[in-house]
Design a protein around this nucleic acid. Sequence first.
DNA 1: TTGTACGCGTTATCAT
DNA 2: ATGATAACGCGTACAA
Lengths: 343, 343
Amino acid sequence: MTLTRLGSGSMPTVTLDDVARAAGVSRSTASRAINGGRKVSPEAQRAVDDAVAMLGYSPNPAARTLVTRRTGSIALVVPEPDARILSDPFLAGLLRGVSDGLTGTDLQLVLLISRQGERPGRTARYLRGGHVDGAIVASHHEQDHLDDQLADAALPVVFVGRPLSDSGLHYVDADNVAGGAIAARRLLERGCRRIGTVTGPMTMPGGLDRLAGWEQEMTRAGRATDAVTHGDFTVEGGARATVELVEAHPDLDGIFVASDLMALGAMQVLTERGVRVPEDIAVMGYDNLGVAERTTPRLTTVYNPLVEMVAAATATLLDMVDGAPAPAGPQVLSPYLVEGGTA
Amino acid sequence: MTLTRLGSGSMPTVTLDDVARAAGVSRSTASRAINGGRKVSPEAQRAVDDAVAMLGYSPNPAARTLVTRRTGSIALVVPEPDARILSDPFLAGLLRGVSDGLTGTDLQLVLLISRQGERPGRTARYLRGGHVDGAIVASHHEQDHLDDQLADAALPVVFVGRPLSDSGLHYVDADNVAGGAIAARRLLERGCRRIGTVTGPMTMPGGLDRLAGWEQEMTRAGRATDAVTHGDFTVEGGARATVELVEAHPDLDGIFVASDLMALGAMQVLTERGVRVPEDIAVMGYDNLGVAERTTPRLTTVYNPLVEMVAAATATLLDMVDGAPAPAGPQVLSPYLVEGGTA
DNA sequence: TTGTACGCGTTATCAT
DNA sequence: ATGATAACGCGTACAA
């Protein structure tokens, strides 16, 4: 007897029943053999395995989900795709993190990118709708209230980066305050006499915290903290804020720029103006997520352990999905200095 | 009567039956009201709407999928995460493309990143398993035989980039031959007397085609095409290949580097060696996917219309999912020159 | 160890 | 327009 493979015509969906019949056992036995394989005789097991191979059987995920209440997938939520998110190593870092965290599992990744102009609440509805077993939410903006919308959800959720409204949600974060301090310290130890900073958006925890850390360290060293301008985590924004900064404070000989992308912009405008980096002005960046490596000279920067954060978040999420209680406090990872030639 | 919201306890899964009961109609009517709303009286519609809102009802996707045979999601397959894929604007471009193509739809995106060390065929099995309604496959390497594995599948699939084994699959591509020619032409018109090229991997269609285009144009202009070295689409590889190239051909005054990342490496080593760009040697890049914008001077390059390709692929896929036949031939988009200061 | 029977939540068919 | 009722494909108590 020959097996006829139907060409492009829709395959006649081989079901568990077919497998059972072909193996000469009942559906239950076939099911057990296919899953754990517990409580099934070697012969039955073999018969089922053969039938599966023969028929090219693949369990229907929907049916399985319907009864097990497990979808086998988790969501990565990337809200508000502003310039920073979609154009940068940031996104790649996120994906590497969850990808790392998912190795060994059979879970798949559903990527939720909030498209602008879509009805608010759509993402939250999707997440609560039972499409996924859990979610990790990255870098949310202030305006979207995903944290509130998810606060009372049954769905396991882990945030990457401290949510603005601390509603008891679990999250993993990097110690951006410490990072800002590291940057300041480097410039101080380097002997800079007058140090300024270009911050990130004051609406984002990361921007705020890095500034706070810088101020702390500067103050501790008895330095002024008045040379501050604000950027938006983009190259152009960094360039603009740097021009502002140096024009307002011509005596600067060291700048902490709160992201590598902005630092890139800073280096460009400084170079254009004939300012030598680091001889005239030392520049510290932040992130080390693929940009700092590519400047000349290589940017001295602070590593923002994004991949590790996301991997940790994923690991935690997996535990929660498996029924483990959410960890008591947040996990906080430490940034560290990455040597370069600009500070 | 007050609605009691259960706190963290797992919500008692409100089903369509509950809605129907609360609305005083049958399940069928409730279902119709919730979906198209066809053949349902205004009163019934209102009653159902109210009940839905009241109960916070959300249809069970698994149950729905089970009967409709639609999952409401498509997969983006990113095989073989080598250096190029995960660390670069390439991935961001892919995601922007599908994201663009998905606007207006209720489809979600499942990201399939082949993790190395996983059983081969896993991805193909997943795709054939009915988890998604369709798939777009990007930038596959030679070694994974996803194209073969998917050739006879019932699942709608669109490739981004020409598959190596042309098995009648549908794909959308960029005209890399034309792109290579554009790069060559620019260098020729600029007055370069001796032109070389750093290619991409000779195992990838893009690498091969860009070289072919360059050779075509050079030959047409009566120039030699012997100054060729091979890179791997990475910064380091580009730097290495460039050194090789200029050492073997000291008379070069123009180089076409087949990717911006490699061009970045090229500019770095050239600068280190005291070679001025573009005065001594003009440099043409390729891609314009986020790297060229950030070099100083800005790289002159050829735009590889990745986002448009993926968006087109997604659009085609959506049609196919909706039952439309696969287009006859491949869609091919055209690259174009992007001005910069290096050539 | 194996099989029987039921339930998961929805949509689709077909009378009414 | 509405309402029974039958699938959809699978896991799993429970009984044997």
